[in-house]
Design a protein around this nucleic acid. Sequence first.
DNA 1: CTGAAAGCGCTTACAG
DNA 2: CTGAAAGCGCTTACAG
Lengths: 343, 343
Amino acid sequence: MAPRITLEDVSKAAGVSRSTASLVVRGSSRIPESTAEKVRQAMNELGYVYNRQAANLRQSRTMTLGLIVTEIINPYFAELAMAVDQITHDAGYTIFIGYSRDLEDRQHEIVASMIERQVDGLLILPALDTDRERLAKQVTAANIPVVLLARHFPGFDYVGSDNVKGAGMVGEHLAALGSKTVAFVGGRPAPSYREREKGLRIALEAHGVQLWSSEELRSPVTPEGGAAALGRLFDRGNLPDAVVVYSDVVAQGVYDEMRRRGLEPGRDIAVASFDDTRIAAAQVPPMTSVAGFPGEVGSKGTEMLMARLSEGNADAPAQVTLIEPQLKIRSSTATWRPRTLSA
Amino acid sequence: MAPRITLEDVSKAAGVSRSTASLVVRGSSRIPESTAEKVRQAMNELGYVYNRQAANLRQSRTMTLGLIVTEIINPYFAELAMAVDQITHDAGYTIFIGYSRDLEDRQHEIVASMIERQVDGLLILPALDTDRERLAKQVTAANIPVVLLARHFPGFDYVGSDNVKGAGMVGEHLAALGSKTVAFVGGRPAPSYREREKGLRIALEAHGVQLWSSEELRSPVTPEGGAAALGRLFDRGNLPDAVVVYSDVVAQGVYDEMRRRGLEPGRDIAVASFDDTRIAAAQVPPMTSVAGFPGEVGSKGTEMLMARLSEGNADAPAQVTLIEPQLKIRSSTATWRPRTLSA
DNA sequence: CTGAAAGCGCTTACAG
DNA sequence: CTGAAAGCGCTTACAG
């Protein structure tokens, strides 16, 4: 294996000192063009590759960020991750990624390994059962700024969709259509789950509409989970006028299970969901969904983190930014009509 | 900002030398438990956090890997990325991620930034128009092993699905059903595209079935792209018995466009696709698709890279591993019957 | 089993 | 504008 080419080698070949070469690498304007050119030429000839890690040891920042999400099969998370990448890349950062798979211990390990590698900051879509004090302690000890994404735990900077408001919009919509009973189906008790339930409850109560929501109706965030949860709802006997599903991914299973039970989504029971990923519009019939703009969440979150980094670690209080949701009305609710009284 | 706690501080507090403390951090068995315990206690009390970057400077490896994919909205890529994470995490690596968005220049930048950060190796799902020599030069100069994933460019280690074989299975299946004409729709001319077309061609020709495939029928790998490509096919007048779509994502748009033109997928025209992501089974009617096992591709690729790393950079010739595909037959082809001759 | 010294490849003041 | 020296936080031989 060829010995590594260092700045020392370059500077010798160019006939300048190491500090001069260093300044050239970093594009300082203090070096006359003629000298800089000699150095650059030497770099090319020797095939020099910059060792940023060595530089990091001396500098205070690494231009490296960490992104931790639970998973990316869910397109909401995938879009969020790509938005983070877009902004950080353009700003010259490179990012570490880790998938916690919603396991708190794994998340802890990932954070630790990123801190060891000296990330400048961390963007985290936290695991469901995140121990907030444990996380706070871990990052405070290392003095690393953190911005939480999409799932709010108090005490941290946060960017996410305004779930309460989005759920309120669905509630109003269903009430206006004339539904008298609405079931909230699927999802695990993440902060976003509670926010959606809350928004729904407030809006429905205001119109005297009943909300069915219980632990039994929760489920993993997968189509299979949604199917099973809907099955449990149906097995109880009474059917609701409308089903609001925790998210598009879960709603896929809800559609399937409804049909297995001989009911047509959108005609027999109105269905609405959250996230407005590609899945929603691609369903037959197309599904009403609350757009949560994961791309916005990712990019605003990244901007917030970068602001913290440049502010020089101000002990400013935690900031919270909510992204405005948007209700996309489609046939799964729009064509539904209340049953005319009979029997 | 508190001054950083170093091993020096720890060793002083514990009353041992720096080298001893260093050995304890790394769990050497050469240090008696009593001494080790003192050191560990000092670490806890001082809130020491290991600086792996400083260690890297002295050691030859960083336990850091780079993963570059085009994007992750496509669930095939998402699953692949998560499989890579699973294995690397368990082996103690942390990974950098970058999304090339199928832009060769962006890919080049990402590779450069990862090399500067001293990754031990690179896993790349290469951009479509990857300049193979340019990439080879870039990584060889830095002496970084690379394994390519899912898109084969000669001269590199590679793991991907056996697309030729998978496409052959679809071809056989459609021929057995009695189709006389098959159109290959959607997708961009990646290596995987060419492999799928080739397998299809061989199988269909063997049975005297016509294959329609042309540049005009290609498209971006999105539902919209698929819809547009199918539109162009239909506008030519003749309709095929079956449409084989480049991938599930593209096929979503094919379903939609077919219906817009008054034809029912699976009844009027058989439809088959590739990848067998969740999308395929979730379609109505469920869609026949060739499973490509992205998780397998990711994990085998990672294992191949890790083997290269431990082999000590052997100049062994490039290895190629193909993952066995599997044809998942569903109603979109299974219920289709040739039109009985009329008119 | 433990300690003093040198070194990994850069950057940062500080002189000149 | 340029150079010699010290230092970032570790690990690695090498003595003892």
